Amino acid sequence: MNLTGNTIFITGGGSGIGRALAETLHQRGNKVIISGRRKGHLDAVVAANPGIEAVELDIADPKSIQSVATKLIAEHPELNVLINNAGIMLPDQAAGTIDDQLLTSTVDTNLLGPIRLTSAFIDQIKSRRGTIIYNTSVLGFVPLALTAVYSATKAALHSYVLSQRFLLQQSGVRVLEIAPPWVRTELMNSQEAKAAMPLDQFTEETLQILGTDADEILVEVAKPLRANPGPAEHAFVNGFNEQMVALFSSISLS
C-alpha cells in the first residue's frame, strides 16, 4: 500500500489503535477523517492534529452508517482508503448465561458494522481502485475464553475478509487485514499491561508492513498465534488461555 497521498476514513479513530494509525498516517501526508461515538475523544484528536477531520458515527446503527457514507463520499470524492477499526471487547460468560445486550452489541459493532460500512463505501473504493483494511485480532485465530464473543466476531470477520479479497481480486481493490496481538489500549483496561505490546511500537511495525505488498499485516509477536495449526489447535488454545487467565487475574475487567 502507498502510505502517502491518500484520503483515508478510519472508524474508531478517537483512541487506541485507531487514533495512533490516524495520527501517523496524517503525519505521512495523507488526508485523514476519523469517526467514533465519543465526540470528546474526536475533538481531542482534531485539536492535537490540525488537518484531521472527524465525524460522529455509531457503527452499530445502519442509518448512521449510511448517513456518514453519503456525507463523506460527497465531501471527499477522492476517498480511496477505508480502515474498519472500531470495535468493542468485553468479558463474557461462555460457560454460563451470556448477557444478550453484550452479545448483540458486540456482534453489531465488530462484525455487522464493518460489513455494512464497507458495503456503503464499496462503489467509492472501486472507483478509486483503493484499499479496504479490517482490524481483526489474533484472537480470531486463537480465541480468548474470557472474551468468547469478541473472539468469535474477529474469526468471522477474518473469514469475510478472505471471501471479499477473492471476489475483488480483479477489481484493482486491495483488501488487507491487520491482526493485532495484545496492545496497550483501553480495551480490557490494558493501558498498563506489561505483557501487552506498547502502542507506539505496534503502530510503527504495522505501518512498515502496510507499506509492503502483504495482505495480512502481522507484527512479529502476532505470528505464532496466526500460525496456530489445525491438528494441534485444542492443546495450543488451552495453553494460551491458561496463561491469559493467570495474567488477567490481576487486572480488573469491569
Rank of each mutant, 00 (worst) to 15 (best):
A222P: 02
V55L: 04
S190D: 05
E23S: 02
N2T: 11
A179H: 01
Y150H: 14
S250W: 00
N135A: 11
A246W: 09
A54H: 13
A179R: 08
L102C: 00
P91Y: 05
L103E: 04
A235M: 03
G130S: 08
D99K: 03
I83S: 00
V245T: 12
K223A: 05
I115P: 07
A152W: 04
P231D: 10
R38L: 10
I17P: 04
F141H: 14
P229I: 04
Q27S: 15
I251F: 10
S163V: 12
D61Q: 07
T118E: 01
A74T: 15
G130F: 06
G36W: 02
G113N: 08
E75D: 13
L199G: 14
G113W: 01
N189S: 13
V107Y: 01
S249D: 14
Q191E: 14
S127H: 05
T153F: 05
A145V: 11
L144C: 03
V45R: 07
A74N: 13
N84V: 11
L187C: 06
K63S: 15
L162H: 03
L168H: 10
Q191L: 13
V173Y: 01
V46M: 01
V237L: 05
L253N: 09
V55D: 03
L187K: 03
Q124F: 05
M244Y: 14
R165Y: 05
T24M: 04
T185S: 10
L144W: 11
P114K: 01
P181E: 09
P114C: 10
L117K: 00
G29W: 02
P180M: 09
A222M: 02
A20M: 02
Q191T: 14
R19S: 02
R37H: 13
K194E: 15
A196P: 07
M197S: 03
S64F: 12
A232E: 14
A44P: 04
L90V: 15
T131E: 13
V107F: 02
